[in-house]
Amino acid sequence: MEKIIVEVMLKPEILDPQGRAILGIFNRSGHAAIENVRQGKRFEISINQPITDELLDEIEELAATVLSNPVIETYAIYTDEGETA
């Protein structure tokens, strides 16, 4: 089964209170080298056909309109061969 990965992150200018809370835990437990943490989402989409450009376009459309909110988030799409979009 082929897999396509979509990662969604809050835009850098959007406040990420969850990431900040995790950073606070890291710093309080002595991990002084860690400067920042941002939390995102990862979607694993299983495909029942070989991955084609057309299919990637279809997934990109879904990543842009459903899986992410363009007001606050960015997305990246990966296949097994590496980043594609």
Partner: peptide
């Protein structure tokens, strides 16, 4: 309404969680 685009912007986690 923000998700449909009928209103601008988005609502995110409260500042202090």
């Amino acid at each position: 309404l923000c998700e449909t685009g009928l209103l601008p912007g988005a609502l995110t986690r409260n500042k202090d969680l």
